[in-house]
Design a protein around this nucleic acid. Sequence first.
DNA 1: TTGTTTATGTCGATA
DNA 2: TATCGACGTAAACAA
Lengths: 272, 272
Amino acid sequence: MGSPEGWEREIIILGPGEPIERIADLFLKNSKTHTSIIVGECDITYKGRASSKAPWGVRIVIYKADGTLIIHEGRDRDPLNWQPPGSLCIPSTVEGQLVITCNSRKYGYEVVVIRFKKILASIWSKLSTTGLEKRGTERDISEAIHSNPDLVVPGATVIGHEVDTPSGKIDLLLRDRDGRIYVIEIKNEKAGLSAVNQLIRYVEYIESVMKRTREEREKSVIGVLVSPGISERAKELLIKQGFIHIDPKTFKQTRHFSLTDYIYYKDNKERS
Amino acid sequence: MGSPEGWEREIIILGPGEPIERIADLFLKNSKTHTSIIVGECDITYKGRASSKAPWGVRIVIYKADGTLIIHEGRDRDPLNWQPPGSLCIPSTVEGQLVITCNSRKYGYEVVVIRFKKILASIWSKLSTTGLEKRGTERDISEAIHSNPDLVVPGATVIGHEVDTPSGKIDLLLRDRDGRIYVIEIKNEKAGLSAVNQLIRYVEYIESVMKRTREEREKSVIGVLVSPGISERAKELLIKQGFIHIDPKTFKQTRHFSLTDYIYYKDNKERS
DNA sequence: TTGTTTATGTCGATA
DNA sequence: TATCGACGTAAACAA
């Protein structure tokens, strides 16, 4: 393919019928700086943490400049096969077929071997590595409560944040005017049993640190699960413990932090 | 691009400089049956469970026939943005730019909007949906122990499998000649605190069901964590409980089930 | 459909 | 580097 507009600096496109030696050569030469995309009929062998074999089929193979390999079929969000960033792909020609061998050392030794029976398209292009801005995450909810503990407990103040325990980190610790302690666990999804179990362990730990009598403990340390929804079994367990569940959509907008997007989503979810 | 070899039945390839109306048309017409691939400079807005905005950059947009949308940059295994299978992408032309709007109803309402400033390549091709054969998974290890409990406890027999508890399912339950019960938890990766916590909850449940005295319990129910490796803190917790850790690479090959690939991997990991 | 668990999870933050 | 927990986790599997 010619390039009358001079766009060969931005992209290289080869159609079907190109000699595989040329594809192998371009792959080898460009894969450190460009993303390689090959569409073609291939089979794939993987051996590493698990093992797999994919039969002949038409797939997209993408090898990024950071050493990531992903292979996609006509379904699913996740790749059929892949290798993590930092992997090394080497093209070769075996018995008239293009073979790409991809090695990774991230988890011991892993290898993916792609053998092409037919290549329909191959592309090289420099892709961005910009990333993106996110909002509406667990951290945002945590920050919202941190700036304004009233959202969860009226008149409470923050006494701890990311508090380390043998069972993990407590998202937030609050204390109200009467000295009651609240262990806050935040999930940005419908909470299940594991979230409640986590909360129980945190509360047990705080109680053990406080070293009070049983009666005092039960009055003074309360688990609070903040999440959009909670499963039935999880709610049972939570209530049995005397804990509280709060849905962040009840926060509404505050002067401290805008949860507009989050609430927008929740409202839509409610409707569905 | 012409097609002297008649390969237009297998793939359509457009280079830079194609009118966006043609691309929009092909996208609309083919996206139900073919996977669409567009390489170009775009910005992306996402609103749904979270929100995000990606600035102008060169990216690969893939829209599969099952309604999956994925957008990749020049780094990382996971897509920058995506929509799950079953989503609907509609192309439009706005102020001379191609805009693809992708809606999903899987989690309430979610939308990804891709606006192209420049398109470098667009491809349509029918991809396979073959899937693959896997081995060396947690299930394989579970089946290996099930067929041959001696791998874990000499002379033991299987008395339970996928046993339901309030905290989740127990992978395997064994009993040895002396009547001791073993709760087996299998992980196919290095085990952390959560794995040990899970095991503790299972053992507590089995003990509570057995309703024996404290002394009897401590003798009779033993937690066994089967995993390739265990983190330091997790091991402390495990030992404090009097539980056992077993690495499946010690299984070796048995006449019941071949763990060849698994062991192959572990051996390589050891070396690294 | 719903809930639960696994995953070659991936990825980022932190000690 | 190893560990830990969140993720718009996704995908498989059982109920």
